[in-house]
């Protein structure tokens, strides 16, 4: 099996989008492009979860995972969601392979338990060794202001977990809304997430929540990266395009 690259969009937000394209539609588009959209909703203690439905729907149509957390638990959640989503994508991929061998109506559960063990080992192996690209989208609308330091911690924590893997990692960081545009690039693709402590203090918060346009930008960023690399590397797993 050829080792490929997993591509994720990680959306960290605390509420409803209120400008531009429908984020659920944009997530569906991302999925068509072979990316997974994961969404983490950050709440204050005692906060009502008005954006809940949207958060859930974005993840659902983006083929990813969503999770609502209080700011305090964010670190643990961000790395967990990222890893779970990786496993889920790989499982989906393996599942298809199995179906092509065993027949279309077969599931992993149709294998005797002893055989399943080997499937799990393959999934674990891939989760550990596959390359991963994560495009992180941070909601910087006004209500997120006091949560940003926690987001910074959580991203550092994420990089500790991912760098403990054998596979390579690349990150890009975007904020929405940006200073002048709806979406602003904070950090271009980089293998190390260490410099974020220089970026976060400069972030300004305020105004609208253009989640849809942000996702659209994320797709574009991936497209650009791909066309740049296309000549050198064609190792992506195209598992959602069938």
């Amino acid at each position: 099996m050829k080792k490929g690259t997993l591509r994720q969009i990680l959306l960290i937000t605390d509420g409803c989008s209120n400008q531009g394209e429908d984020p659920v539609a944009m997530a569906a588009l991302a999925r068509e492009h072979g990316m997974t959209v994961n969404v983490i909703g950050v709440l204050d203690e005692n906060e009502r979860t008005e954006g809940l439905k949207e958060i859930e729907n974005i993840a659902l149509s983006g083929g990813g995972i969503h999770q609502l957390v209080y700011a305090k638990q964010l670190s643990h959640t961000v790395q967990m969601v990222t890893r779970k989503a990786m496993t889920q994508t790989i499982q989906g991929f393996i599942h298809k392979e199995l179906q092509s061998i065993l027949g279309h109506d077969k599931e992993i559960e149709d294998l005797p338990p002893d055989k399943r063990g080997q499937v799990v080992e393959v999934v674990d192996e891939l989760g550990e060794t596959m390359d991963l690209e994560v495009l992180i989208m941070i909601d910087t609308s006004a209500s997120m202001q006091h949560k940003l330091p926690t987001v910074e911690d959580a991203l550092l924590d994420l990089s500790i977990s991912l760098h403990s893997r054998i596979g390579e990692n690349e990150y890009a960081l975007y904020a929405f809304p940006g200073k002048r545009k709806q979406v602003e690039r904070l950090m271009d693709w980089t293998p190390i997430l260490k410099d974020i402590h220089t970026i976060f203090p400069k972030l300004t918060t305020g105004g609208i929540t253009p989640t849809g346009p942000a996702l659209k930008e994320a797709i574009d960023a991936y497209q650009k990266k791909r066309s740049k690399r296309g000549l050198l590397d064609d190792g992506y797993i195209e598992e959602s395009s069938s």
Partner: peptide
């Protein structure tokens, strides 16, 4: 050995305390 630890509890995890990675 040599892979990354996926399940951990913050208080007992050296990554959480900034005192190491999760290898």
């Amino acid at each position: 050995m040599g892979r990354s630890v996926k399940e951990f509890t913050e208080f007992f995890d050296r990554g959480y305390w900034g005192l190491g990675n999760r290898v």
